[in-house]
Simulated assay, not measured.
Amino acid sequence: MLNDRKRKILQIIIEDYIETAEPVGSRTIARKHNLGLSPATIRNEMSDLELLGYLEQPHTSAGRVPSAQAYRLYVDSMVDSMKEEPGVLTENDMALINSWYKERIRNMDDIFKSTAKILSRMTQNVSLVLANKKSTARFKYLKFLPLSDTQAIMCIVTDDGAMDNGLIDIPAGMSSAELDYLSGKMSNLLEGRRLTEITGDLLQEVYSAVSEDEVMLASLKKAISNIAAKNSEQKVFLGGAKQLLNQPEFQDVSRVKNLLGILEEEKVVKDILNAGDGSGLKVTIGSENKFTGIKDCSMVQATYRLNGQIVGTMAVLGPTRMEYRKVIAVMNYLHKYLETILKDPK
C-alpha cells in the first residue's frame, strides 16, 4: 500500500506528464507544487515508486514517467471519486456539444456520425462508435416507383428518417394508382414494426389482404428481407484519426501506420468494441487491451441503451498519457445526451 505522500507525488507526476508529455523530475515537482518537501526527499520517494513499479525512467532522462500500473491506480481512484462527484464540463463545452448535434442531425446515422466527430474533437483522440441499428429502426411507410411495365423500385422509410430501396417485380400493366393504393394499405398495416419483425409470414398476411399476385409477393419478401438484413448490421463510425499525429507518442511513422491500419479494418474495430461486457464505463490501459495493435494505447469505452436495449458503444482510443478525467466527463455527458435524442431523433 502507498502512503498519502507517495500517492500525492504519484498523482502530481501523472497529471504533469499528461499535460506536458515530458518526464517529470524532483526539482520540477518541488518548484511547481507546494508540498513542503525538498527535491532530495521527493527524489527518494520517486525511487521507491519506481521500485514498486509505478514509475519508469525513459532512456537517460533524469525525470520519470508513469507506468501502466500507475495509470491503473490513478484511473480506479478517479472513477470511484467521480461516482460521488461526477466530472462536470464547462458551459462552453456543453454548449458546443448541444449545437453540434442540433446543426447536424437529420437521421439516425447522423446521430452516430456526430457522436464520433464531437467525441474526437472534445478529447483530442480517436473516437470509435459502434451502432446497433436494428435496435431502433421502425417501419414508417413505403412507396412504389414504376420503372417499367414489370418492375418497380420499392422505397422504405423508417422512423429515423433513413430510406432504403429495392427492385421488385410487379404484374404487367399495373398502374401507378394501383401501386399507390397497395403501398398505402401495406404502410398502414406495417407502420411501427421493427424491420427485423417483418417476416415472410407477416408480409404474406399483410399483402394477401390487398393483393393476390404471388410473383410480386415473392419479390417483396426478398427485397424487404435484404433491407432488414442491411439495417440489422452493426455500423462503425470513426472520428479524429488525424488527431494521432498531434500526439508525441505517435511521431513514429511506422507506429501510426500500424494503428491506422487497424482502424481501417471494420471487422477488427467491431471486434475491439464488442469485446466489452456491456456493463457501462470501462477503461483498459496498455497491455490490458486484448488486441495486439493497441497494447500500447488506452481505451475508454461505454455502452448506451434505449429502453433497456444496447443501442451501441462509444470509445476513445489514445496514448496511455490520456486526459482520463476530461474523456470520462465528456463520455458521461454524451451518454445522457444520447439517451434524450435517441428517444426523439427529430
Rank of each mutant, 00 (worst) to 15 (best):
Y207E: 03
C297T: 09
T313H: 00
K290I: 12
E264M: 07
P146S: 10
N289T: 10
P319S: 15
K117I: 02
S232I: 01
L145Y: 14
T115A: 10
F250K: 01
V79C: 04
K267Y: 09
I285W: 08
D76Y: 04
I156H: 06
E214A: 13
L179E: 06
Q204Y: 02
P86T: 12
I18N: 08
K221I: 15
D164I: 01
D16H: 09
A137K: 14
D16S: 15
T123S: 14
E249P: 00
S183V: 10
L73A: 15
S211T: 03
D201K: 04
S67I: 11
I341C: 03
D277P: 00
A40Q: 13
F250Y: 14
L273H: 08
L195G: 11
S148L: 09
Y17W: 13
I272N: 05
L244D: 01
A95I: 03
D201R: 04
L89E: 11
S232N: 14
M314K: 08
Q251N: 11
L260G: 01
A70R: 01
V268L: 15
G318W: 04
N44C: 04
L245Y: 07
D149L: 12
Q11I: 06
D110Y: 01
A302E: 07
L2E: 10
I224L: 13
F250T: 02
Y54G: 03
E265W: 04
A95W: 05
V157Y: 05
K222C: 02
P23G: 08
A116R: 00
L10K: 00
Y333C: 07
F237L: 06
N125M: 06
D169A: 12
R43W: 11
M331C: 11
T20K: 09
Y333E: 12
L128S: 07
M154D: 04
D252S: 11
L73C: 07
L145K: 15
M216V: 07
G240T: 06
A40S: 12
G280P: 05
V24C: 04
L51E: 15
K326S: 13
F112W: 12
D80G: 03
L130Q: 02
I42R: 06
D169M: 14
D160V: 08
Y304D: 02
I310K: 07
G278W: 07
A223T: 12
R255G: 04
I42L: 08
M331V: 08
R7S: 15
D201H: 01
E103C: 01
K140V: 10
Y304K: 03
E265Y: 08
C297Q: 13
A329D: 11
R305N: 10
A241C: 10
Q243H: 11
A21R: 15
N307D: 14
D149R: 13
E233K: 15
V236H: 01
V215P: 00
L317R: 06
K113M: 12
